[in-house]
């Protein structure tokens, strides 16, 4: 069992996501939600960093928060899964513990 890291703040405003990516061990799950969902998109200044992390960690992004911001779920980086609220609960259930980066 491994951790679920949750990140809710924009990576362009705070460095929670960047810190998370440095400390998340391979195989752990990461969920981006609220203002952090912009970090899951293709074409951003952080795309390379996040796409790289998606190779070793299981990255997820919360669909309702993408939709609220008008961000297209079909344009998230490869290797990132879009989940709904039930998926969020499942991730928390499957994790040994939750590390909330807030």
């Amino acid at each position: 069992m491994s951790l679920l890291h949750t990140v809710s703040k924009s990576p362009f405003e705070r460095t929670n996501l960047q810190s998370c990516l440095k400390l998340a061990t391979p195989g752990s799950a990461i969920l981006l939600y609220e203002d952090a969902v912009i970090g899951a998109m293709q074409g951003t200044a952080l795309a390379d960093l996040v796409a790289d992390a998606a190779k070793s960690c299981k990255l997820h992004v919360l669909g309702p928060d993408l939709a609220a911001r008008g961000l297209d779920a079909s344009k998230v980086l490869p290797g990132i899964a879009v989940v709904d609220y039930a998926g969020f609960v499942d991730l928390a259930e499957q994790a040994s513990a939750v590390q909330a980066w807030c």
């Binding site: 924009s10 362009f12 405003e13 203002d35 912009i38 669909g63 309702p64 928060d65 939709a67 609220a68 911001r69 008008g70 961000l71 297209d72 709904d84």
Partner: peptide, 20 residues
């Protein structure tokens, strides 16, 4: 900065329960 996202087209806030 992130303020540009305030003007993004195509927002649908139904699932987060907030007013668009």
């Amino acid at each position: 900065d992130d303020g540009v996202l305030q003007l993004k087209k195509g927002m649908d806030t139904a699932a987060i329960g907030m007013k668009n």
